[in-house]
Each structure stands twice: as C-alpha cells, then as structure tokens.
Design a protein around this nucleic acid. Structure first.
Lengths: 366, 366
DNA sequence: TGATCTTGCAGAAACGTACCGTCTGAATGC
DNA sequence: GCATTCAGACGGTACGTTTCTGCAAGATCA
C-alpha cells in the first residue's frame, strides 16, 4: 500500500532510470514519437536530415526498441518454433541426433537470413510454455497423427509446416519430405547390383512415417524380386538396442549377405557384429545405412550411407514457413520432395569380379 | 476526432472476430477483467467457485492469453537465448557438432522444466534480430574477449551466463567450465602409464580458451617430464583439415607413439592415418581423443575418449541463468567447474605387459 | 450499535510501440 | 491575390495484459 505511494512520490524525475524509451528519444531529439518511429523504421516522409538526427540521438541514448511492445502492436514476433518429438521427457532422440542437429543448424541459418529467430519447443512441453511464447509460425518435425499441438496451433491460425509427410490429414500449410520409398528401392537395387542375394533390413518398431514407408518399400521390393524378407525391428529411440538388433540379424540361420540399416548407429553396430561373426565387409557382407554422420567415411571399411539431406530440408521448411507467414506463398498446401543422396563407399562396392570390369577405363581420365 | 467517433460508432459488435481476448472472457463470465486475470493466474482472493467458473468459460471460448501483452506488462518473456559462435555465416562448427547438440538438448530440457523456452541466436546475427526478441537472459558459448554481443546484453541489464571461462574480464553473471588443464594432464598421465614414450598432440590454431588451456597444459606436462613436444595445429573449424593434420603428425620423423586429439573428428582421422602407415592401435600407437560421439565405442579398435559432459554443462548453465533472472542466486559472479569423464577403451590400454598385472584382481570384485 | 476486518470484486493506470488521420506552412498555379 | 498541392511533422489511439488501489457488503468484536 505505502509501497506504491512511495513509489510514485519518490519518482518525480523521469519515468525510468533503466532504459531509454521512444519517448525519451523524441524529447531529446525535439521531435514527436511518430517521427522517431518513422525515422528508425524507415517509414513515413522525412527528410534525410531529420532521419539522421533522430538516429543519432537514439544511438546516443542507447535506445533499443522494446521487442514486446513491437510484437504487441504489430502482431509479429519474429519468432518461429521448431518442434521436435520427444521420447520420455527428453527432446529428440539419440538416433536422430545428427539429423536433427544438421537440420536445426540449417533452419537457424535460413530463419536468421530472413530476420527470424528459432525457438526450440519439444512437442510434449508443458502447455504453459507453448502459450507463453508468441510464435509467428512453427516447424514440426515428424508430427504424429492428430498431433494435439499442431491442431491447437492451426486453430489459432498459426502457420505450420512439417518436416516429414504429415500422417493422416493433419492440416499443415506445407510439408517437405524425402521420397523414402524411392530411396529404399534405390539402395536395394544398388545392393543387388553389387551382387547381394539376400538383403536384410534393420528397422524400427515405432510407427512414424519414415519407418513405415521405408519398411513397406522393402517388403514390396522383396515381393517383386521374390526374396523372403529378412529383417529385425527394434525401438529406435533406445541407444543400446541397435547393437543388439544388429547382432540378432547376423545371427539368424537365414543370415543376409547385405544389410540396410534405417538408423544412424546401425552402421557401426552392424560392422561390430560382422566382426564378431568373422564376416568381412564387403566380401561376406554388404552394408549400407542411413546416416548423416561423417564418421562412416573413416571406418574400416568406409560405409556407404544414405543422406536425407537434413540441411536442405531444414532450409526448405523454413522458407515455406516464412512464405506462409508473410503471405507470399500459395493458399493451399504445398508439398516438396527433396532428393536423397547415396554416398557409395567400400562397404557396398561390388565384390564379385564375375562381371569383368575393364581396369584401364578408370573413372574419367582427367 | 471524427475518426475516433466513426471508429467507435462503426464497431457496435465485438472488437475482434479472430481470437477471444480477456475482455471477451470477462463479459461471457459476467465478471471483470481483473477477476479473469486473477482466476487464471491463481492470484487474488477468489472463492473456488468463481475461479472454476472463469476457467471453464475461458476454456469454452478457447481463450489464450497474449504472450506479447503479458511480456510487455510483466517485463518477462520466458525466453532465454542460446548464443553460439559462428564461423563464416554458419552457426556452430562441424567440430562442435556433437558437443553442441548434446549441450543444447540438455539446456532445452532444463529451461523447459523451469518454464522457459530456448532461442538459438548465433553471435554474429544481424543486430536487428537480436533486438527484435525479448530475452530474459542469455547463455553464451565460449565468448571471445570483449564480445560485443555480451557487452551490449550486460549493458541492457540482461543476465548472461557463459559456457566456458570467459576470456578477459567479460562481465558475465556466472560461468561453467571443465577443468581443461587437469583433464589434459590426466590423459597424458594415463597414456604414460600405458607405456607411451612420446606423446603427441593434435590441436587447433584458433585462440579460444579450450584450445589455449589444453595446449598450454600439454606443453607444461612435456616440460615437467622432459619430453620434447610433438604437435600439429590445424584450423579446427575446417572439417577436412583434421585428416590432413592427423596424417602430418604421424608422418613426422619424430613420430609419437601416443596421440591425444583435442577435437571430435581426430579419433577416426588418426585411426585412418595409422592404418595408412601400418601402425597398429594400440600396439604401435596409443590413441585418445576428446569427443562426445558414441561411435568410438564401435570403432576397430574402440577408442578412448574424453567427454566434457556437455549435458551437465548445459543443465548447469541454464540453472545458473534462471537463478540470476529470478534473483535467486548470489550477487556476484559464480563459477562452477564440471568434472570431465575419461572413457577408457582399447586404444589406450596398456600394451606392454612388462609390468605384470595380476589378472585375478579384476576391477572391484563385485 | 458502532468500529474494525475480511472477502470478493471492479476501475483504471500503465507497459512501449506503430500507424491512421490530421494539421501546418510554404510553394506552386492561375 | 487566392486556391491548390504537398512535404513534413504530430496527436492520439489501440494492442491485451497485469496489478495497484478502492470500495461495498458481510463478518467479527467490544
């Protein structure tokens, strides 16, 4: 009670000792608030002299516009959310680490280049955090069917773009994804061309779109070429389970002579398992895994990897989102398919020299 | 004057078709704005019945408080920045990838648990982005001496906590770091105990604190034990340079019989280089590198790594920052040293069995 | 019964900005 | 000399909250 009274009484001076407001700048420059606002934001009709003068005074006073006030007034915060799926309280899994890191890096860059900043918000966050931050739009990674967070955002009119084809009929404004089926078929063909007779798959037990599409493509391929499917599933979010599953796959009586692993750690784990069973790579076992990690360039032998190009996806997703925010883009959903990249290394190189490759005709001469 | 009149006259209906505001809730619930605010925020003196009623009406109208307005009023945004150093336009380097990803993950988690969200803001961002987001505080990773961003933040009264001992006398509120010197000395002793005669170092050319302290510690150790230093430096932010430097180190006439690599990719690159020179690990060459990557558990052979525990650091940094924001902590700078973790694997295990280790006396019995 | 406390709620003042609409004086056109 | 135009600047309001303060009406007490 007295506190407030004292407060007011003891402040006959300026309204703030702390920071200079736009009012202070206006007073110091001898112009109106409007003029200051216009001068600093490059709007209105002002002679350069005035503009310069105001800017100089603002600089001298160390004036920084209040982001909160601006956001309130304009309805734009300059923030976009990056929503990651969570497993057991922890944001993004170990498996998705390299993918996510690269994707986030690219997204951050792209957002920044257009004047936006990125906020990381796990999908399972406490609701109060979500509603406590003013988002101009959100990127959602791999949204699950009827994702409540996405539904709520859309209801509020916040643009949403997803990385990964949205399951069901989630009302996102746009999405970007790889053509996972084509990628898997390409790899299987590549392995078959390298001499594989029985190709195995290391896959996950979860039902996200990536896992589902990839597995289905594998099964289809098997059916087409008349091979019995050989695969092991494991909970991809468990960092230890990969090694166990890799071991199990190579321990089977119908052991495959080539394996494609859907997740990042599968490469090293398969390699370790192969070693335990005395299998040489690529002589006894061809290996490919989906990974963004560069370590596979230096393993013994180097392992062929499929890159999903998370950097390109992150950039594309942010561009689409900002277009939607700024009303540039189309009015109905946009989908964009990104190329994957198969980096062929020793682990999947043709080992049977049955087909005579003429040695003189090396790569490209030059 | 007429404008205002027209304005008011031509809007006899609601003020907004879009979102329900606190006013709408108040009207619908038949109470005042104050009561709504108090009811939803658990403040004031209200009977439970009123509170429930208001909450129910708010829910029914799909009311979401405006984060911007709340921020403007309270001066709290619930946002904390995570500033990363940049190299050539790109946020954080390849080298720091695993470290940063883990640190960011932990920081995100910790922030969230206390009701804050994290904004990623590269240090070299355009200034307008920085001033466009209202931050309650900022975490700075490895701030350079007299970092302009940090100086500006401090000037504005925004709490700053740094990961990594701040260079010079940067006025941060707190910092967290490993004891890099001790870590390096520990590793060198470990290698020496494993029979190393000449230990080499793979280090960086940049002048950040980590590199500097580690290198100095190495040189000191060499002087103490009377070994001639054997090291190669390379620009750590260049993803390709590591391999070249590793090769150079092992190509030297005074080739070391043990190497410690300060950066993440050094392990695989040293391994590859060793292979090229026909050196067996650990028989001919002992290897340790600083890395957060789990791939070193599955290389051939598995490589001993030093973990800086980025997760713990991320958590600690955020805790300190939020304490500072909420005025919980001490008034003067706090520093906190985090333990590092040496994960001993085959690559640095004693290879000469000159010292007879009694096999029965295994680790700790049980 | 009158004085004092407590409860339950409402009014209204900020918070700091952006922008719409308006005003002024000078230059221009006839 | 008067009407017209326009550059240059400004007043005022709204954005949607939180919170300080005030005020009735009932409860408690001497």
């Amino acid at each position: 009670m007295t506190a407030a009274g004292n407060h007011q009484a003891s402040r006959p001076i300026g309204r703030r000792l702390e920071r200079a407001g736009i009012r202070d700048v206006a007073a110091a420059a001898g112009v109106s608030i409007t003029t200051v606002s216009d001068a600093l934001n490059g709007k209105g009709r002002l002679p350069d002299a005035t503009r310069r003068h105001v800017r100089e005074v603002a600089e001298r006073l160390g004036y920084r516009p209040s982001a909160a006030a601006r956001t309130l007034r304009t309805g734009r915060s300059g923030l976009i959310g990056l929503t990651v799926t969570t497993y057991g309280e922890e944001p993004f899994t170990f498996t998705e680490f390299a993918y996510f890191a690269e994707m986030a890096r690219a997204a951050t860059s792209a957002a920044l280049a257009r004047g936006y900043a990125l906020v990381i918000l796990p999908a399972s966050s406490r609701h109060d955090v979500w509603s406590n931050v003013a988002l101009d739009g959100t990127v959602v990674i791999d949204p699950s069917d009827h994702d409540p967070v996405v539904m709520e955002l859309v209801r509020q009119g916040v643009p949403v773009v997803s990385d990964g084809r949205p399951a069901g009929s989630l009302p996102v404004h746009a999405w970007v994804d790889n053509d996972h089926e084509e990628a898997v078929l390409g790899i299987l063909d590549h392995l078959a061309a390298a001499g594989a007779r029985r190709i195995g798959l290391l896959t996950g037990t979860s039902t996200d779109t990536y896992t589902r599409l990839s597995t289905t493509a594998y099964l289809q391929w098997c059916e087409r070429v008349g091979q019995e499917p050989v695969y092991e599933s494991y909970p991809a979010h468990d960092p230890c389970a990969s090694a166990v599953a890799a071991d199990r796959l190579l321990a089977r009586p119908d052991r495959p002579d080539a394996v494609y692993g859907l997740f990042d750690p599968n490469g090293t784990d398969l390699l370790a398992a192969a070693r335990r069973y005395g299998l040489r790579v690529p002589d006894d076992l061809l290996l490919v895994c989906c990974s963004e990690s560069s370590v596979y360039a230096s393993t013994e032998p180097p392992i062929t990897t499929l890159s999903l190009k998370p950097g390109k996806i992150g950039t594309a997703v942010v561009q689409l989102l900002i277009d939607a925010i700024e009303g540039v883009g189309a009015t109905h959903p946009v989908q964009q398919i990104m190329q994957t990249d198969l980096i062929v290394r020793t682990s999947s190189q043709r080992r049977t020299h049955r087909t005579t490759v003429s040695p003189p005709r090396s790569p490209a001469g030059g």
